[in-house]
Simulated scan of single mutants.
Amino acid sequence: VSAKTIYGGSYNLLAHTLPRYGITATFVDGDDPSNFEKAIRENTKALFVETIGNPNATLLDIRKIADIAHAHKIPLVVDNTFATPFLCRPFEYGADIVVHSASKFIGGHGTAIGGVIIDSGAFDWDASGKFPSLTEPNESYHGVSFTKAAGKAAWITMARAVLLRDIGATLAPFHAFLFLQGLETLSLRVERHNYNTLQIVPFLANHPKVKIVRHPSLAESPYHDLYTKYFPRGAASIFTFDVKGGEKEAKKFIDNLKLFSLLANVADVKSLVIHPASTTHSQLNSEELKQQGIGEATIRLSIGTEHVEDLLEDLAQALEAI
């Protein structure tokens, strides 16, 4: 069971690709944690959420959702890419497995592709009774039971020993080096991302050519209380807003930006902009786009680490060009 407000690539994996392999997903509105419980069936194996939803910076109550997962003896998997471990540590709120696209803030410069999986070691796979691949003998490894052989590290051991072997999702050594380099400046970069964002959000919210800004720092945001609870350092330097008009006005704004780069990547030290409906989320149909809150006038910004006055000036002149 997954929140529906997730990255378009993750949505397509769960909605279209994995069903061909016998794995299906139910998508729910994560604003109400009880929706997850209502969707759980006897064969449900996990709940999946993002700490900060892509692209609209939606938030959800991680602790409540974790409690629901554990009441049904299944793990909570959290994509913490947009929050980073500097801003939020989902294990502290009950998450069992955390994943990151390391290509984003961890690398920080848009130069490498990779991902990270972290197992908390806290989930009791034996007591769950839903994971025979972990508890029963694995014939490809001489009949080993991963829970007996690896204990708390059973799941991540199986991921390395079996899934990595069979699927081949192996990180390139040089990319691993770049990610390690990026980690050294993660906190400094994220602090600057957040500082710039908190200057830009009110500027956009008060601009006459902007229809709506979706950012949880705004008092009127439905996610403001969750923002103050889970992100005391601030967060969500990747967010969306709608200009007044439609696709024509949105793309004219983008075309007139000078500092912001038109790229599908996010979480770069460079400020980035894109039109989600025609790019990152273009494989979604009109109903799916509507469910995820993406319209023709929606623009996604990824605020970088440049001087904030330069960014504000660039946004102002591009809005005036509409």
Results as ranks from 00 to 15, higher is better:
Arg165Val: 02
Ile97Glu: 02
Ser286Ala: 15
Phe174Lys: 14
Leu180Trp: 09
Ala122Gly: 11
Leu301Lys: 08
Leu164Gln: 09
Thr240Leu: 10
His70Ser: 11
Val49Asn: 06
Ser10Ile: 11
Leu289Lys: 15
Leu18Val: 06
Pro208Glu: 10
Arg89Ile: 07
Gln292Gly: 00
Gln199Ala: 14
Val210Lys: 05
Asn54Lys: 02
Phe82Gln: 07
Asp67His: 04
Leu188Lys: 13
Arg300Met: 09
Ala127Ile: 05
Ile200Ala: 08
Cys88Val: 14
Ala112Phe: 01
Lys290Gly: 07
Phe260Leu: 09
Ala112Gly: 02
Ile117Val: 15
Ala153Lys: 13
Ala236Ser: 15
Ala159Lys: 09
Ser278Trp: 13
Glu220Ala: 14
Phe203Ser: 00
Tyr7Val: 06
Gln283Glu: 11
Glu296Trp: 05
Glu184Gly: 08
Ala161Glu: 11
Thr5Phe: 10
Ser103Lys: 08
Ala169Ile: 11
Lys252Glu: 14
Ser140Phe: 09
Pro208Val: 12
Glu247Arg: 12
Ser2Val: 06
Asn56Ala: 05
Thr84Met: 13
Gly151Tyr: 11
Leu319Gln: 02
Leu14Tyr: 13
Leu284Trp: 09
Ala161Thr: 07
Thr279Cys: 07
Gly129Asp: 15
Asn196Pro: 01
Gly30Asn: 02
Glu37Asp: 09
Ala236Thr: 09
His193Leu: 04
Val98Asp: 02
Thr197His: 09
Trp155Cys: 07
Ala150Gly: 05
Val273Ala: 03
Ser128Thr: 07
Ile6Pro: 01
Ala161Cys: 08
Asp166Phe: 14
Ala235Cys: 13
His307Ile: 06
Ser221Met: 10
Arg192Ala: 10
Tyr93Glu: 14
Leu311Asn: 03
Cys88Lys: 09
Ile254Ser: 03
Arg63Gln: 08
Gly108Leu: 06
